[in-house]
Design a protein around this nucleic acid. Structure first.
Lengths: 201, 201
DNA sequence: CATATTATAGAATCAAATTCTAATCTAAAT
DNA sequence: ATTTAGATTAGAATTTGATTCTATAATATG
């Protein structure tokens, strides 16, 4: 510390430590209910440090959200690269989501509850850019299969809800502990349903 | 009032007035960001009165949520009564949701953001009972069509995400203003997709 | 090595949530 | 009609948590 004579500590990893502490708190207590104090305690830092890096609880949440969504998106694009037809692509969208959520349930739980975050304008803008880039890439990937007649031609903004809506809905259910059946045990069902919903016939 | 000499006002409709004021505030400002004070101002009541009826902001939100979800559920069961086959039933689930959201977007926006509410244990229990009753009725309704082979046999907990997930996902999109195309213009697409996902073939 | 910038610290301040006590109203019982 | 118990309203007082502020230490830069 400064005023009280302790030395400053842990500069390099401080940001990351705060993010990890915050995620743990959010997961245990919920975003709305966790206090700055709880995060501070867990991260072992001062209030000043926390505000310096993130400007408050909502800044921490924004950073966490952007990191998480970026990782999720990047993973999907990598896996789409290995797909060579529409059915594989659609299945991959569903299965990747299920895998990702299963591998990092805390982060997934946070992302899913993220509606409650009051993003600052800059974070909002950054997110918008991220989404545009990502969905742009995804639509480019699928576009040829629609043109080729392998997939139904639908209003563009309906593809994502139809393909990803069910698995995301079920993931919320599983993450909240209201169903016993693990995601991976039903993800094939959702992949199949998604393909049936969008395949040309 | 009591201490300051004004008389008490508006006993009968006070609960309802508070709920309406709260919904308006939540819709304009978001649940997390609206203060008790704002609700109090809008409802024209005292802090004491608000706490007496609801025990705080989260109590108001719980009551609003339970009222809303009950109305939504009741409406679906009424409309299912008029259906005589599986396809009609599945389509009705989708179309009813779209209609309901279109008719009361403020309440729908609130329900959709309800993940952020920290329900008190009693509210949680009440909600659980409501869901059990409702989904019990819905599953009873659909059960015969699965047995009869009109619909696919799937893990029970996957039907709701598959049928309702996409329209709910799109409704969130529309309610948040990120898409121009109104729900009713695409609800047929979602009804069709839902039926294709669960029909036996 | 001087200086600027960044990071840390925690006290001080500010705002909102919640509690508490008292007044008023309503309805039931006599 | 009066009394009384419970419900409702009121807002001041208190508590809690968020945010700001100033100071100190570390680090990077010329």
């Amino acid at each position: 510390m400064s005023r009280r004579g302790q030395p400053n500590l842990a500069t390099p990893g401080r940001r990351q430590m705060i993010l990890e502490a915050a995620l743990a708190c959010f997961d245990e207590t919920g975003v709305a209910a966790t206090t700055i104090e709880q995060i501070r305690d867990r991260a072992g830092c001062s209030i000043g440090s926390l505000y310096h890096h993130f400007g408050g609880k909502e800044g921490v949440a924004s950073a966490l959200f952007i990191d998480g969504i970026s990782d999720l998106n990047a993973g999907l694009l990598r896996r789409l690269d290995d797909c060579s037809n529409a059915e594989q692509g659609v299945r991959t969208c569903v299965l990747h989501y299920a895998d990702w959520v299963t591998r990092q349930p805390e982060l997934a739980r946070f992302l899913v509850h993220a509606r409650e975050i009051n993003f600052a304008p800059e974070a909002r803008a950054e997110l918008k850019a991220i989404y545009q880039r990502h969905f742009g890439a995804v639509f480019t990937w699928f576009g040829r299969f629609v043109l080729r007649g392998d997939m139904k031609q639908l209003p563009p903004e309906t593809y994502i809800p139809i393909i990803s809506g069910p698995i995301e809905d079920y993931a919320r259910l599983w993450l909240s502990g209201r169903t016993r059946t693990p995601l991976v045990e039903v993800s094939e069902v959702f992949a199949e349903a998604a393909w049936n919903a969008v395949r040309a016939r």
